[in-house]
Design a protein around this nucleic acid. Structure first.
Lengths: 330, 330
DNA sequence: GTGAAAGCGCTAACAA
DNA sequence: TTGTTAGCGCTTTCAC
């Protein structure tokens, strides 16, 4: 007497037990068409009793959709695939996919990578694509076949919805906080030019500095702690009157903090330091880092869901709030 | 004249163009059976010319295998799913899966989670399972149906291969380094009892301390930086003569470092501090943290590959070397 | 509202 | 060595 085992039971079994055809069982379980309440109820019960587990790949084969969502990481170099941020996105996406029977795969997309995108577009196993860190160039090259099942964590376009943190507002809040607490020589350590995600924070910074009649002072980093160190030393040399440094991300801010500490500069006494993203280590800096929150997991989940549910119309853009996290560094 | 588009072309098309049957085309492309060199060559060329892209879900449906590899994270609480370490594993696995057309999904497995394992075992969409941080209890409950396609990053068992860093040897090298550089009161900050991954390091530490005739002094942490802080304060109070602290992971060691710095204890002058794992932030501590390497991505890739290729025989265990990374904290 | 039947793209007996 | 045939489990016309 074999106890009901999960995957061994197919739609056929459910249909038989419910006394309906496979087609009807499919209709109720996939919710695709109208079914009489009685049939619906019988199918539901049969499925429950048998521990029915739909087979996503059979479904995908029949519908012509895919079983994996691709995370496409856009960058000049594939090393960025193993960045901590990408890991958070991958984990959150993979967790979101789990109950759906889907999987996540991680691809590197070079900056001019229209060709890999075309391959993804035609790959029947690809359900949808989540772009990370994409550029306008790449957005413009999105194949027709991907529209409706591609979103961007970062900048979007007319066709591709953007699902991201509102880093413009987040940056503005930081700069206002710095100004409001009396800082007057506020330097912004930004990221590489090609990264579109630096634009809104940079614009917010510049606008506010202009509004209050202070000079915009920027240094280009590359999102690493090492670049934060370097930036801090440069700032100290170039603009000795600096009393605040705002870095585009926490890693860089922690680098700034380390360099300042080694130079004997008091934080926040002499110089205030602020990061962005509120990564777990931010609280561990010395002093603990003031920063702004970044709900990476919630964003990744929203992006994954958007890409998994196909829509005829473009998904709406979504901006998740970034909130100031006051700690001791500013 | 439509240019050949990728996924639109099926095995049928390739077979037709090569002038063979679908079966033969399948044989050469899947490498499953002997085919004449001429036929092989013709199929290969046809596939190339048509940009043939096999459909993994059709293949999975036909073979009864799955298209996703499950990462099962064993822990008392699901929050551990969003640990940085899990993110690294997820990203590496998802990257390994990409060229195979497979995906990764992330599941939480409670410590006593035999039931979820049974569901995974019967789920036809699951190709294999990578266990993270598993326990003996769970290993003993692995369903028959999963054998041959499950591996453990952590401890293994007679049926389940272990693919992990050799943290016993890594820990031994650290303790020897500490002793060799003159430290005599060496405290080990360990992790929770239930985590099997603390066992080999703990054993290595205890053995060496005994060999050299020194007391084994341990404090229990929980892999967080906060627990490192707490441990450091406890150590300072309980064993004021302590001249070295070895933490089970870098996060904890960084917490130790922070607490020591705040207390004005000189590192490494008064107390040496060593971590484990060589996470990116280790180099950023002040002073930069001495630790031992942990090739997480390579391990995750090996585990994923092992689980994707089904074998009749148990895969061999694999231990990746952990190497001492000397920086300034010890 | 429901069932019969065809088919998604592939593999795996079984014959030849 | 090769082709024929029968599915894998599901969805989806198309009649009824």
């Amino acid at each position: 007497m074999p106890r009901p085992s999960y995957g061994a039971v197919t739609l056929q079994d459910v249909a038989r037990r419910a006394g309906v055809s496979r087609a009807t069982a499919s209709r109720v379980l996939a919710g695709s068409a109208a079914v009489s309440p009685e049939a619906r109820e019988r199918v539901r019960r049969a499925a429950g009793e048998l521990h029915y587990l739909p087979n996503p790949q059979a479904r995908a084969l029949a519908t012509g959709s895919g079983t994996r969502v691709v995370i496409g990481v856009v960058s000049p170099h594939p090393t960025m695939l193993f960045d901590a941020y990408v890991g958070r996105v991958a984990a959150a996406a993979a967790h979101t996919c789990a109950p759906l029977g889907l999987g996540v795969s991680l691809h590197w997309l070079p900056l001019d990578g229209a060709a890999p995108l075309r391959v993804l577009a035609e790959d029947r196993s690809v359900r949808g694509v989540v772009l990370l860190n994409t550029t306008e160039t790449l957005l413009a090259a999105i194949p027709q076949a991907l529209l409706g099942r591609v979103v961007s964590i970062g900048i979007g376009s007319a066709e591709v919805p953007s699902i991201d943190v509102d880093n413009g507002a987040g940056a503005a809040a930081i700069v206002r906080h710095l100004y409001g607490s009396g800082r007057r020589r506020i330097v912004f350590v930004t990221g590489p030019r090609w990264m579109p995600c630096i634009r809104r924070p940079l614009r917010a910074y510049s606008r506010i500095m202009q509004e209050v009649g202070l000079p915009a002072l920027t240094v280009t980093g590359d999102f690493t702690a090492a670049s934060g160190r370097a930036a801090a030393e440069l700032v100290l040399r170039r603009w000795p009157a600096t009393d605040a440094i705002f870095a585009i991300c926490d890693e860089t801010a922690l680098g700034v903090l380390a360099a300042l500490r080694e130079r004997g500069v008091d934080v926040p006494g002499d110089v205030a330091v602020v990061g962005f993203d509120d990564i777990p280590f931010a609280a561990l800096g010395s002093p603990p880092l003031t920063t702004s929150s970044h709900p990476v997991e919630r964003i990744a989940e929203a992006a994954t869901r958007a890409v998994v549910e196909p829509t005829r119309t473009r998904h709406p853009d979504r901006a998740f709030a970034s909130e100031l996290v006051l700690r001791r560094s500013a």
